[in-house]
Structures are given as structure tokens and as C-alpha cells.
Simulated scan of single mutants.
Amino acid sequence: MRIALFSLFTILFMSVTPALSATCGNGPGGYEAWKQSFIANSSSYGLKERVVKKALQGLTYNKKVVRLDRNQKSFKLSFKQFYAKRVNNAMIKRGQKLGKTYARIFNGIERKYGVPAPVILAIWGLETNYGSFSGNMSVLRSLATLAYDCRRSKFFTNELVNALMIVQRRDMTPAEMKGAWAGEIGQTQFLASSYMKYAVDWDRNGKRDLVRSIPDVLASTANYLQKHGWRRGQPWGPGTANYRVLKKWNKASVYVQTISVMAEKIGS
């Protein structure tokens, strides 16, 4: 009888706490049930059930994504090793060339946000080699898998909800949402939550498109930094206020140092 009462209480509790109704897992076994529960509770996240159902339809558990999440080795390298692995002279020269190609856009962005072109170019180059490869994995499939996975379920559930908000707002279709394994979107690899907060429609076409619109990509990156405290006209090397802002972009010290050094070289 005690078990039956507990079960009844659990059902009632779950019915008023939608976010807890889907149980995470450490393997594919419970994924489909989790997904159906998530869809059923769409409204609790401010999402339309029909949008979520259509967006997640057919998405299966991705073992590769979970494996990659457990095996992140790049940030264990020293700065010298990381920089040598990720940056070369050709990237610096290409950044300088792109700075000239999009000079008018960069000038407008710096006037509004205070972030100079070399910093944005360094991030753009380091994240996706200036948009050459921003990932070809389904963002929604990756985020649904990681939201279900117990390791960082709360964090990735939030990212999944934000990604679905992007779809619901019609900025992008599910098919257009291709990215890196952890669900990063676009040419400077915004997480979906950052996309919702900081993406801007610089080209004024009615959509905030960080996959195909270079003006939107560059301006959104500057907006992110500005909103996190970027100080206009000040340096960005170690020990500066702007260096601390770069740490908001990526917590890995080798990554931040690489952005800083790369930006100096592009701007020289």
C-alpha cells in the first residue's frame, strides 16, 4: 500500500512540475520516453507542442555526441601547444584580408558596440576558420541527446528549449540548424541561449541568421562582448578588463589567450 501511495504522489507531483517529469538517463534505453514526455510538457517551457513535436520528430539518441562530451582533450594542452594546433600564418593573413573586405561592416559595428575588428576576426577564425566549417550535425538532435543525458541535463535542457524557441520564432528551420556536436550554432558558434539573448539582425532582412549572414554573425559577436562589459578603446591583453570579458566567451584559459594573441597579430 505504501508503494501504491508513493506512486500516486509521484504522479501528482510530476503533473504540477513539468520540468521534472522527464527522467534523464545514461544510455539510449529511456530516450524515446524522455522525448515524448518533453514534447507533452512543451507549454511549460513557453513552446507550442505542435512546433516541438515536428522539430523533434524522428530524432534518435546520438551515441557519438555523448562520447564527445566525455572526451574533451583540447583544453588540456598548454597555450603553446593549443595555439600551434589551431592557428597558423595563413589564418592570420586571411583574417587581415577579411577585415578589409568587410571594412564598412566592421566600422559600423565598432561605432555601435565598441569592439574592434581584430577581436571579432580572431573569434570568427578560431571558432570556424571564418565560417569554413561550422559543423554539420543536427543541433536539435545533439541538444536533445545531451538534455536527456544525466551528466549536464539541466544545462542542455535549457539549450534545447532555446533552440526550439529559435525554430518557433522562425529565425531558422530545424533542417537549417546544423552545428557542432554540443549544439553550437553558426559561424562564431553561439549556444542557443546566447543566440536568443545576443543575436542581432544587422542586415535587416527580418531574421537573425548566424549561419548564413556574415553581417549578423559579426554584429552578434560584438553585441555579446559589449553586453558582457567590453570597454571601448581599451586593450584586451592579459590582466585587462577586456581580457576578462573574453573569458566570458570561453572559460578555457588557452582559448582566451589564443583569441588575444591572434587578434593582436591580425591587427598589426
Rank of each mutant, 00 (worst) to 15 (best):
N62A: 14
N62R: 14
N62T: 02
K64V: 14
V66W: 02
V66P: 09
R67K: 13
R70K: 15
R70F: 10
N71L: 11
Q72N: 14
K73W: 14
S74C: 01
F75P: 00
F75E: 15
K76Q: 15
L77A: 11
S78H: 10
S78Q: 09
F79Q: 07
K80G: 01
Q81K: 15
Q81L: 06
F82E: 01
Y83E: 02
A84C: 02
K85N: 12
K85I: 01
R86K: 15
V87W: 02
N89R: 13
N89W: 01
A90V: 02
A90R: 14
M91I: 06
I92A: 01
K93A: 13
R94P: 00
G95F: 10
Q96M: 08
Q96I: 00
Q96S: 07
L98A: 06
L98K: 08
L98D: 03
L98S: 05
G99M: 03
G99S: 04
G99I: 07
Y102R: 06
Y102P: 00
I105E: 12
I105R: 01
I105M: 02
F106R: 07
N107L: 07
N107R: 13
G108I: 03
I109G: 06
I109Q: 05
G114L: 09
G114C: 10
V115R: 08
V115P: 04
P116Y: 09
P116R: 11
P116V: 08
A117H: 07
P118M: 12
P118D: 12
V119S: 07
V119T: 04
A122T: 08
W124H: 11
W124T: 09
L126Y: 11
E127N: 11
N129F: 12
N129W: 06
Y130V: 14
Y130E: 09
G131V: 05
